[in-house]
Design a protein around this nucleic acid. Structure first.
Lengths: 335, 335
DNA sequence: TTGTATGCGTTATCAG
DNA sequence: CTGATAACGCATACAA
């Protein structure tokens, strides 16, 4: 891409060897004599030769690129996911093409198409919902390496590594129950992961023989601080809970602010548990108990699995589909 | 990449046309009759043809890929930067290869090399420091499109779009001075951007004829919440400031917590201003006044400039080097 | 309107 | 140990 781009051809002409010899020498093939190798290397350095990875990818049918599809980046969990994946990939000689879907199925479909046409060696994706499962299944059927970072419960025969949100909510509810709470609220949105959490909450109530009161389940319009602030009032006034599970830390923090402004004491009058164990949870005025999403565990397992799938493409044997579930952990603080 | 990868060749054989005709028809060339075009399109759809962008890139000498180099992703400013850039690039038909340097000059150099060898059409980078300026200059001299997202003050003839941190600190200090503060502290780290802020702080003191007391400048070891918490004590006890400018919101929030735990009232006894206007600043117990880093302005200007540089490569004319400075704005809250 | 020939920069195959 | 030749999949100039 320089003004005069140096190719192997130039250094072949300069040194008098064939292009082939140059190619072999540059990648340190043992078939080339030490002497000519050093001549070629020297010349390459002098001309500031930079290999053209695009050409190499074309002939090797391998781009050393992994596509990452995320719904957004501002969610701290996904930020960390992206960062961790980048670190791991780099160590293994891969680079990362990052696509953000804004939780739009159309953008997700587009991202999949783009990545496939760019010949990425594999894809890690945090799916929007189930909208593109047909497309994903098609890829999977063609042995394309693709791992989902969520949705182990999905009815889709695809590899997935995910945090068991249902279990997280179950643990949160159980924690409240053991502390003597009887009226435990739930505040979340309508998306799939929140539904999973809600199921865990229900299960804990049921296992502990606590009757379910529908008014204890509040709905939130978005998943930010403001939404928590805006939604807690209705839940609080209608159901009078003594504890509330919120599907995101920020929702809990917003709700806690609403309480603070009205003199409702936390945790004496009302307790909270959030999800994801974000930094904000730990340094809130009243540090928030939270269900920790173990990003490192997810990214490590997911990349490991992805690399296995990539290796498999050459061989004929293939592992069966893997659904790897990571257990969440409750980080107990003062809320 | 499918089990049997469909190429233009296959659809040429199937339809009886030449590969060339197929190629032209698929990209909707007007030179192909409507009839054969629809035949070819139909066949392509049926075979689920996916173009090989790698091959296309090789011949066109254009990858439609932009490299993004960031020091990290967990810093909210950089998270937003990455997300915004992705959105803008997508609209213009580009995709993004993301590299994280962990503030290591070695990793930064490596990232530059990788991106160049991958033939990206341009690079946007948030530089670690000045370590790789020779390399960057070399690229720039070869007309490689590269825009720095920081460091307008750097002595480097390269395009840059950045937020004027010096000006931000100047505004913060002036705000305090106008509120009657005489003993204004400064809490920051030793990196380049914090130095710039410190210079703005000095300038404001000087312009308002406030004598400078070295004990008012505190040093922080990292740039997180804990660092602020740990570092405010020394500054407070040694210099007894009535207001403190912190180089990051999190530093301020940590310091504010330390004060709260000791009954120091904010803002009556001690005021704070942070930098970046992060979400955490707005919903802190005492909402934090902060110098807003206008990510959207930076990313929009930077991509615009980058696209111009990319266009220029074809033409012989070239703009002179651009240093675009974005003015920060003080978001005043209750701290 | 369509087909032929050539090239993008590299690696792979097979001789020598 | 080294060199000639053919791929990789697509796009382009030039013919027909």
């Amino acid at each position: 891409m320089n003004s005069k781009s140096i190719r192997q051809k130039e250094i072949a002409e300069k040194t008098g060897f064939s292009i082939n010899t140059v190619s072999l020498a540059l990648k340190g093939s043992p078939r080339i004599s030490e002497e000519t190798r050093s001549i070629i290397m020297e010349c390459a350095k002098q001309l500031n030769y930079i290999p053209n990875v695009v050409a190499r990818s074309l002939v090797q049918k391998k781009t050393n690129t992994i596509g990452i599809i995320l719904t957004e980046l501002m969610n701290p969990i996904l930020t960390e996911t992206a960062q961790e994946i980048e670190q791991i990939l780099k160590k293994s000689g891969y680079n990362m093409m990052l696509m953000i879907t804004n939780s739009s199925p159309e953008q997700e479909a587009e991202a999949l198409d783009v990545l496939v046409s760019r010949q990425v060696d594999g894809i890690l994706m945090y799916p929007v919902f189930t909208a593109n499962f047909a497309k994903i299944k098609l890829l999977r059927d063609n042995k394309f390496p693709i791992i989902l970072l969520a949705g182990g419960d999905y009815e889709l025969p695809t590899d997935a590594v995910y945090v068991n949100r249902r279990e997280g909510a179950y643990k949160a509810a159980t924690h409240f129950i053991q502390a003597g709470h009887k009226r435990i609220g739930f505040l979340g949105g309508g998306n799939y992961s929140d539904k999973e959490k809600q199921n865990g909450y229900f299960a804990a109530l049921q296992d502990n023989h606590i009757p379910f009161d529908p008014s204890l389940v509040g709905r939130v319009q978005s998943d930010g601080y403001d939404a928590g602030y805006a939604s807690i009032e209705e839940l609080y006034k209608n159901a009078m809970p003594t504890a509330v599970i919120c599907t995101r830390d920020y929702i809990a923090l917003g709700a806690m602010r609403w309480c603070r402004e009205r003199g409702i004491r936390i945790p004496e009058e009302l307790s909270f548990i959030g999800f994801d164990d974000t930094a904000a949870a730990s340094f809130a005025e009243i540090p928030l108990t939270s269900v920790k999403y173990d990003v490192k565990a997810v990214t490590e397992k997911a990349t490991e699995l992805l690399f296995q799938r990539i290796d498999e493409k050459d061989k004929s044997v293939a592992m069966s589909i893997q659904k790897i579930s990571i257990q969440p952990r409750l980080v107990i603080r003062q809320s």
